[in-house]
Simulated scan of single mutants.
Amino acid sequence: MGVVGHKNAGKTTLTAALVAELVRRGLRVSTLKHTHHAVDLEVPGTDTHRHRMAGAQQVVLATDRRLTLMEEAEAPDIAHLLTRLAPCDVVLAEGWKAGRHPRIEVWRPETERAPLARTDPTILAVAATGDPEVTQPVLDLNDVGRIADWLCSN
C-alpha cells in the first residue's frame, strides 16, 4: 500500500504509526521510501564507498545486528524494489505519487493544496484531519487503528 500526499501532510508520521500498529498486531512489515533529494548514505573514503566507486553493482555492509544493501539502479520502480525485499505480510511504500499500486493519501487542510484524490481515482482512501471533499472513503488521520483496519481489509 502506498502512502502519498503533499509535502508536510504527515506521510512519514502516518507510515511510522502504521508500521508500529501492524507490528503490534503480529504482522511482518517492510517499507519503501521514495525521495527526490540527492542522498548518499556513505561517507567518501569508507571501504564500502570505495567498493561502489570502483564499480561494484551491489555493496552489502553487515554488522552483527544489521545489514545495508546499496545497489546501483536507474530510477527503480516499486515492482523492482519489491523483488529486493524479504517475504513479509505488508509493504508500505511512502512517497510514490504516480503509479498503479494501491495508495492512501494523507491530507491536511493546512497544506492549502487540493487533495490528490480529487483527480487520481487510483488513490483508494484519504486519511485526513478535515473534509477533503473526495469520493473515496475518508478516514480520521488521528485514528491509526481504524486506518490499519481499513488497510488490512483492502
Rank of each mutant, 00 (worst) to 15 (best):
Q58L: 10
D89K: 11
H36V: 03
S30V: 03
L139Y: 07
H80F: 15
T15K: 02
S153C: 15
L61I: 12
D47A: 14
D40H: 09
T122K: 06
D40K: 03
G95Y: 11
L61A: 14
A93V: 15
R146E: 14
E105G: 15
E71G: 00
R108C: 01
A73P: 03
E110Q: 15
D120K: 00
H6W: 15
E110F: 02
G95L: 08
I147K: 00
G26I: 03
L139R: 02
H6I: 04
L81W: 02
D47K: 07
L61R: 06
Q57T: 15
L18D: 02
W96N: 08
S153Y: 04
W150Y: 13
K7E: 14
K11L: 05
I147C: 06
P132S: 11
A148E: 04
A62L: 14
R108G: 04
T12R: 01
P102K: 14
R66Q: 13
L41D: 08
V90K: 13
V126K: 04
P44F: 14
P137G: 01
R28H: 13
T111F: 08
A38S: 14
L116M: 09
A127D: 01
T15L: 13
A16Y: 01
G10A: 09
V144T: 10
I123H: 01
G2I: 13
H101Y: 15
E42D: 15
A79T: 08
W150E: 11
P102C: 12
D40Y: 09
V29Q: 07
T35Y: 10
A79N: 04
D77S: 15
A98V: 07
V138W: 01
V3N: 10
L151W: 02
K7Y: 12
A86H: 05
K97P: 05
L69D: 02
A62Q: 12
E21T: 01
R108W: 01
A73H: 06
A9V: 14
N142Y: 09
V3D: 06
E94G: 15
A127F: 04
G99C: 14
L151M: 08
G45S: 08
E74F: 13
A128I: 03
L14P: 04
T13I: 11
A56Q: 02
E74Q: 10
L82Q: 00
A127K: 00
V59R: 05
L18R: 10
V91A: 11
L27V: 00
A16P: 00
N8F: 10
L41F: 10
